[in-house]
């Protein structure tokens, strides 16, 4: 299991979190991502390495399943 925590450093990167318990795997976010970083694998939304954390996808999600945070997955 992955866990997230806040990193108290200057150069921590913004990253996109998918709240899978909310996501309805509809693909709306995939269509607006300027980096092509998102992909739906059936009911699983995958975030690719090209994600810049811009937050566009999080804005348009009809359910609010995406969140840009300063946290780092470990």
């Amino acid at each position: 299991m992955s866990k997230s925590f806040r990193v108290l450093c200057a150069d921590c990167t913004r990253m996109l979190q998918v709240h899978r318990e909310i996501c309805g795997y509809c693909g709306c976010c995939v269509s607006v991502c300027p980096e092509g970083a998102l992909e739906l694998i059936d009911a699983y939304l995958e975030v690719g390495e090209s994600c810049t954390g811009c937050g566009i996808c999080a804005k348009v999600c009809p359910l609010g399943a995406l969140e840009v945070t300063d946290e780092v997955q470990v």
Partner: peptide
């Protein structure tokens, strides 16, 4: 490039 501009995606439920 097939990106849909944010203002032109109808987000739907």
């Amino acid at each position: 490039d097939t990106t849909v501009p944010v203002r032109e995606i109808m987000t739907s439920a």
